[in-house]
Design a protein around this nucleic acid. Structure first.
Lengths: 223, 223
DNA sequence: ATCCGCTTTATTGCATACAAAACGTTAGAT
DNA sequence: ATCTAACGTTTTGTATGCAATAAAGCGGAT
């Protein structure tokens, strides 16, 4: 079986060396749980840098919606109420399909290949059971549609909507059945992309996100 | 005629004291034009603080899309191509009417009153001809719909879309006729809000943004 | 005259030191 | 025993100094 070599590179400019990337990874891995405090000194010692780059990382993460900073009190990982998560999926269901519609006709062959790679990698990860690794791959998968939609501003707006999903660890709540269905959606998105059929991609993307909203137990009318 | 006392407070948490707010104001006023470099030392001396808070301000502005930072080279005010501006309006035309639809039924009487205040203040400003002051008021006006839409994530995503509009100084390109029409749209938005008619607000908001796209000369098919 | 390489200079990136604010604790009074 | 006030600790906010990187200027060779 072949391997998928340089995969988990979520975005080009985010060199994994920076303090920002490392703090972000701590949050994404769940090591720093929602609501927990991010003390500058502790993070600085852990990462091995001074407080200055840590502060920059926290400010950036705050602007991206992954941590919350209160003046003179420090930063903590954002914690979402079920309604927050539901709202997140509502917006994504409204706009990500449109991004897919716009992006698919613009995709190059290498983009489609990468989507297929990512989908395959996600299936591998599901088989191995390492659900936390899914978030990064899933972000990359969805991010590719978003990045290629042909509108910088649309892309950045959608990216700020996708980041919080990483800290919510939604995949942990999926049933095996829902997880499988999600993987099938990915495969179908790859097929729609390969066919350069934007409308097909739009439809399956909407399906995918609404199914995800249910799988994450994030319906508004639930207790 | 009555005055509108404490108005130009764009957002509660942005105390006008911070270095961030002052740099932002320099950009919004056009004193720092698009493309110009933001040298930390110069800004520090001008604002009267050290480089540290300046750096934090620049990082935040970068995350918000108003400046661009290249490593070891510094920050400059973002400059938009006409297509960028057009794309911005495209996205806003998709997002903001939906925000208005969601927000209007949730507005309190004090929100509607504030919208009316802001609309009146904008008309005053237009009569006085100080177009640069319009940006802040307009941001506050649109931001109120966004902030009250009942969906945190939607709100933050939209805010990142509205900030770049400030640096584009679009109002300068408006014809007197387009400026008047824009003011009428604001008045009608206030009326729709006062009637708590979300669909009316949605429709006029879409009209307002598409008209703005034309007034700013930001159609895709133009040279 | 032009191009290449070196030196100089300006600017950012990071670390450290200090100041200010918030929090927890303890001692005292009622 | 409880509430209050003041102290000490912890943590953040700011200033400053130094190192690293990139741009600019300059001299020499072709």
């Amino acid at each position: 079986m072949e391997t998928h070599p340089p995969l988990p590179r979520p975005n080009d400019r985010e060199v994994d060396e920076g303090a920002y990337a490392q703090v972000r990874a701590l949050i994404a891995s769940g090591e720093l749980a929602a609501g927990s405090w991010l003390r500058e000194k502790i993070l600085a010692e852990r990462i091995g840098v001074s407080r200055t780059p840590i502060r920059e990382a926290l400010n950036r993460l705050s602007a991206e919606g992954m941590v919350e900073i209160s003046r003179n009190k420090g930063a903590q990982v954002v914690s979402f109420t079920p309604d927050d998560v539901a709202g997140l999926y509502d917006v994504r269901a409204g706009f990500e399909p449109h991004a897919a519609l716009l992006a698919v006709p613009l995709l190059g062959d290498e983009d489609v290949d990468r989507l297929a790679e990512l989908a395959a990698a996600m299936e591998d990860v599901v088989r191995s059971g390492e659900l936390d690794a899914l978030s990064a791959l899933n972000s990359a998968f969805h991010g590719l549609f978003v990045d290629r939609c042909g509108n910088r501003h649309f892309a950045t707006a959608l990216q700020t909507l996708m980041r919080p999903a990483v800290v919510a660890h939604t995949f942990r709540k999926y049933s095996p059945e829902a997880l499988n269905r999600s993987m099938l959606h990915h495969a179908e998105l790859v097929a729609a992309a390969r066919a350069r059929d934007g409308e097909w991609a739009e439809a399956i993307m909407r399906t995918h996100i609404l199914a995800a909203r249910n799988a994450a137990g994030a319906r508004h009318d639930q207790p």
